[in-house]
Each structure stands twice: as structure tokens, then as C-alpha cells.
Design a protein around this nucleic acid. Structure first.
Lengths: 199, 199, 199, 199
DNA sequence: CATGAATGAGTATTCATTCAT
DNA sequence: TATGAATGAATACTCATTCAT
């Protein structure tokens, strides 16, 4: 009497996601080389072998995490925001509020930001300062908002891509703090906004 | 016919420093666990065994780097700056100019900043958001300048320690970019100053 | 409404035999350490767990195969042959014809011969060149035939046990060829017989 | 004061060969899957890690052994023999005497024969009964001798390649016996020769 | 002192076995 | 009973460290 194939598939998908989600935080905190499979599996609460049922190797697991981060990262929000008929300043306010809310509420968000930036830094090998794959999507809309704000006079002058990079860099910075420090105080909206806003 | 003891001592010191300096960059780029002694020694251009002539272990080497960073980090400058009879705004200008100059000119500076922050993040284990050992020195004087600026109305309001942390966090951010990307564009003085300065 | 106990028993026996038979071939081709339970069960066409319903462990399965080979190996035939009142040469002819027929027709026969010899080689650890357990039965009657032939002048002189071993060794050789090669050409009767027959 | 590069190279070559030679016997006796690196290194008398200094992986080590066997196998002798102006029967005598001498004297020879045949059987996957790479060389000259003998009437009729394969098959058989049994009695020249010779 | 080959403790990965369904 | 997901002991492989040269 075999298990029902649907149930089986469901179990597999659940476990796979569990491993992926938990691993994001663990890798973000410990780095790739600093993560031992034995520790990771203990942290997830499963046997070592189980990881290898779902992922070929530590490397492959890490790669999949990377892909998952890119996939899940919520571009849609900022995309929406960018196209709204409101002043750029207000867009930055809304974006900042949302980002800081997520940063505060959700470990995973911080982990994803941190891991993603680290991967970008390492993989780029410095090929280009900006713009790999999806990242460009995020930056594209951010850049749009910034340029709008520059026209409206609410955002400081300068290369818009560079400013976008600065804004997200600071978000990365506080994601790290979120992950590594406990008595951590989140950055103020005003401080974060000042990366790009005048005044 | 032995070499003169002084000459011998000098050779030893040179090699020791060479290893320390090169290791800072390598550790900053690859992290502690990501650094293999075999790769590091190849990068330095010496035999694996040679590292063990000068340092007991990988851990000890890393510790010494940490100490060296703390020792060499130029506190004196900012100490001097803090006590100068000039407006805080001007102090921030001078500091920023100097920091960005060093960041641009000197790999090692970037490496030291990056490594130092990483160590802080990891070692703190979150014990306290701010202020371990020497760090406090640097922050102490920075805080002093910020408080002066707040009185003078040139620096934004808020917890001065948090603002100092923000300023140096951004410096860390661009140290990472310096280390990991080649087509890297350094941050503008204005952008960096805006972390704390009004306008 | 339980199935009839007899039918149930029959189903069990069938599955047990299926596993045993298929395993003989798989073990013969891949050796004991070279056989993974996961691969074996796929080859048989059942789930991994099923094997453990019928056999305690991989080792036990292998042992049972060994016993089964010994049990099934058709000693009776050669026993019969040995006692027939005909010339040894004719006995060798009949035996050879029968052996080659089985070798050609039946994968399982080849698998049994191959496995059996391998087990002998490995387990002996070289304790004795000839004659473990059952093997002695087979060899005993073969030896008898050979000695008869030597008296009759149709079989070459020499230690009869050694000659029996030679004959069966060559059968083993061609069992391997049968198992491992596809374009395999079976050995001629004459070639096989020449191991012991004069002319 | 670095070690002299020549001496270094020599040490490396020696160790490499030591590992290769000892591994031949060990793999021949235990098979690929039956060989644990930990046991193998103990058998060789070195640390586990040392094997990985010279060989990428267990698989690569096994491959190199295979190549080495092919390279070292002494084709030259039989090549020479094949072209000598003497009767085929005499060639078979000489060859057999030499083969049995080596089999008796040299573990490594038996190991090489055994391993080589096993690899052939497994790798062929049955593609062709005869003739992979070098094997063809050996068989080519053997075939030549057999065909000469068939003309001279000293060798039995039949496909010469098949007969060559038979002869070497029996050599393989006794290589296995040599490796796996201690009280082993080598095959007589006459018995081995009878695979191909009349009478 | 400087080297790199050798080592084994530590880490990644496999696979026989268990067990909930 | 039959299954295959989960497991951890066993095994392959890596890398910090030692040591003869």
C-alpha cells in the first residue's frame, strides 16, 4: 500500500522549503565556509542525511538559496510604487517605512538582504559595481523614483544609480546589524531617507 | 659567520609585517573560515610552513591582525580634530575628506575597516550594539563632534552614538565595495556627510 | 475480511523468491559492496523498504542467496552421472553439454556459478584451495569421474581434485563472460572438455 | 632554505608509485567498492590525506591504476616471441613458462592481470567480447601465434581470437586463485597449454 | 629560517536501515 | 504489506598543522 503520490509530493515540497528558509538565516549569519552541514541540520532540526535527500551538495543548496532570494524578493511593491502618481518624496517615505517595518518584523527579510548583498559582492568579483540580473530590476525602479525626485527638487543631485546603490547599501548595513546584534536599534526613517532626500 | 643579530631581527620583523599586511586583505575578502592557509600563503608568496614560523596558528594570526588594526587605527587624528576650535561642520568635512582619501589610496585601510567591523559584528554576538574596547575611543571623539554640531545646529538631532555608528557603518559599506568590486566608484563626500549633516 | 492465510503465504513466498532470484544476478554483476540497496530495489522493481520486510539486512539477504545457490545447485545430476555404467569420456561429454546448455539458456545459472565462486574465493581467505562445505559434494563426484577416466586412459594424468577445480574454474570464467558481455560467444564443448580430456 | 626541486620531484614520484603499486593488489583483492581509503592507506603505510596529495579522488586513483597496468603490461615479450622463427608450439611453451613463472613469483603480476580483466569485463558493459585498446595488442600477437600453430597442425582449430581469449581467461582464473587463496597450487604448464595445444 | 610533503582531526557525503503512513 | 522519506553511522575528502630537509 504505497503512500499517495500527492501527499508524498507535498511532504517533499514542505521539507524542501523548510530547509531553504532556515538555511537562509544560518548562511547569512555564518557565511558559506562558516556553515557546517552538521550544525545546519541540527539548527533546522533534521538529520544530516535529509539535506542530501533534497540537495546535491552544500554548494547546490547555497545556489538554490540565492535563486530563491531573487525569485521571492518583492520587486512588485516598489514597481507599483514607482508608477504611482505621487511625489517622489512620498514614495521614498512609503518605501522606507515598508522596508524598516519588514526589517524589524522579519528575520528572514534581513537574512535575504544580507545574503543577497554578500553574494553580489563576492560573485561580481568586481565585474561591475551595479546591476546583476534581478538586482537591476530593483535598481531600475528605484532609479526612476530618484530621477523623478531630482526633477521635483526633493532628492539630491548625482548619479541616480549610485544613489540607489547607496540607499540599498544602508539597508544592507542594518540588515547585518539586525542579524548580528541583539540590543540592536533600528535606523530611523529620517536617517535612511537622508541617503537620498534633501533636507 | 652568523649574520649580525640586528640584521636578523630586522628580517624577521619584515617578514612578520608582510604576512600581517597581506593577511588583512585576504581575511577581509574571504572571511576567517573562507581563508585556507594554503591559499593565503600562495597569495603572500611564501611557503605554508613559513606562516607557522611567525604565528602559532591561524587563530593567533587572526588575533594579531585584530590587535594590529586597533593599534594602527589612527585615533590620534580624530582626537586632534575633536579638540580643534572650529565648527563641527568643518570637522566633519575634514574627517570625511581624510577618510575618503585613505579609502581611495589604500587597500589596507579598506581591509582594516572591513575586517574590524566584521569582527565587531561577529564577536559581539550582539552583546552590545556599540562600543567594544578601542572602538569606544573612536566613537567617543566622533560623538563629541556630533554633539557639538547638534548644538551649533549643523548636525541632525538624534542619539549621537547612533549617528556616529551610522557614519562609520557607511564607511564600512564602501570599504567592502572597495575590496570586492573593481569598477567601484567611491562615495561622494556630500553623500557620506549627509549621514549626519543637515542639508 | 482477511485474505485466506494460504493465499497470503503464497504471495509472501513469491515476493521472497522474486527478490532472491533478481538479487543473485545483481550481486553477481556488482559484488556485495558494489550493490546498493536503493539500486537493487529499483532493479527488482520494488520499494527499498520491501526488501527489509523479507530480509533482516543486506548481509542476511546475501547469506540466503548463498544458501539458496547451494541448495538449488544441481548436484543430483552429476551424482547420477558419476554412477552410470558408461565410460568417463561419455560422462564428461554429457556433463559439458548440459552445463553449456544451462549457461546459454539461463542467466540465473551463470549468476549462481559466478556468485558461488566469488564467495568461495573471498570467504576462503585462502584457508584451503579446495573443498568448502557443499562444494566438496560437487567436486567429489567430478573427481570420481576424472579418476575413472584416468584409468580408462581418456583423461589426462594429474591430481584429480586439481583437474576438477580447473574444469569448474573455466565454467566460472564463461559464466562471468555471460554476465558481463553481450556479444559474448560461449565456449565450445571441445574447448571446455580439453581441460581434462586427452586429445 | 627551500628543498632542492629535484629531490622534491623524486620524492613525489616515489610516493606516487608506491601508492599505485600497493593499490593494485588491494583493489584486485577487494574490488573498487570494497576498498576503503582508510584501510588502503593503512595497508600502504601512509596517512589518509597523503593519497589525496597525489590523487584527486578514489575514482581517479583507480583510473590511473588502470592506465598504469595497460602501460606496464609487457607486450614487448610476446611481440618478440610472435616474430621468432620457431614453431608455434615452442612459442606457446616459452610463453606459458614465462607467464607461470611471473604468476608464481610476483603478486603484482597476478594483481595486474586480475584487475585488468575485471576492468575489461565491467567497462565493456559487454560492448564487445574482445579487444579494447591495448588488450587488442596482446591478443593480436597471440592470435598470430595461434594461427601459425593451426597451420603447423600443433594447435586446435577454431577462431583464433576466441582461443587467445580462452588462454588468457585461464591465466586470469589462476591470477584470482593466486590472490585469494594461500594454499594455492599453480596450474601446470600442460594444463594451461591444453587450452590451445593439441594432444 | 624556509619549505612543502605528510598527517589526522574535522567536515562533507553516502547508504543501510527504520518507521510513519 | 508496501512504500519512500528520514536518519546517522560509515566513508570519502579537506585543511590546519607538523617536521625532515
Amino acid at each position: 500500500m504505497p503512500k499517495s503520490p500527492e501527499r508524498c509530493e507535498e511532504i517533499r515540497t514542505d521539507m524542501r522549503n523548510k530547509i531553504l528558509h532556515k538555511s537562509i538565516l544560518y548562511f547569512a549569519k555564518n557565511g558559506f565556509s562558516g556553515t557546517k552541514i552538521s550544525d545546519l541540520s541540527k539548527y533546522i532540526g533534521i538529520g544530516q542525511g535529509t539535506i542530501y535527500v533534497y540537495f546535491e551538495s552544500k554548494d547546490k543548496l547555497f545556489q538554490e538559496i540565492h535563486q530563491m532570494i531573487n525569485r521571492e524578493k518583492d520587486i512588485s511593491q516598489i514597481k507599483l510604487l514607482a508608477n504611482l502618481p505621487i511625489p517622489a518624496k512620498q514614495k521614498i517615505h512609503k518605501l522606507t517605512k515598508e522596508v524598516l517595518r519588514q526589517l524589524e518584523e522579519d528575520d528572514l527579510f534581513a537574512g535575504m538582504i544580507a545574503l543577497n548583498t554578500q553574494i553580489l559582492l563576492e560573485q561580481n568579483g568586481g565585474n561591475s559595481a551595479y546591476g546583476t540580473t534581478y538586482q537591476s530590476e530593483l535598481y531600475k525602479y528605484m532609479t526612476k523614483i530618484i530621477e523623478q525626485g531630482q526633477k521635483e527638487g526633493s532628492i539630491v543631485s548625482g548619479n541616480s544609480l549610485k544613489l540607489a546603490d547607496y540607499y540599498w547599501g544602508v539597508v544592507y548595513l542594518y540588515s547585518l546589524k539586525r542579524l548580528f546584534t541583539t540590543k540592536y536599534e533600528i535606523i530611523n526613517s529620517e536617517d535612511l531617507e537622508r541617503t537620498v532626500l534633501k533636507q
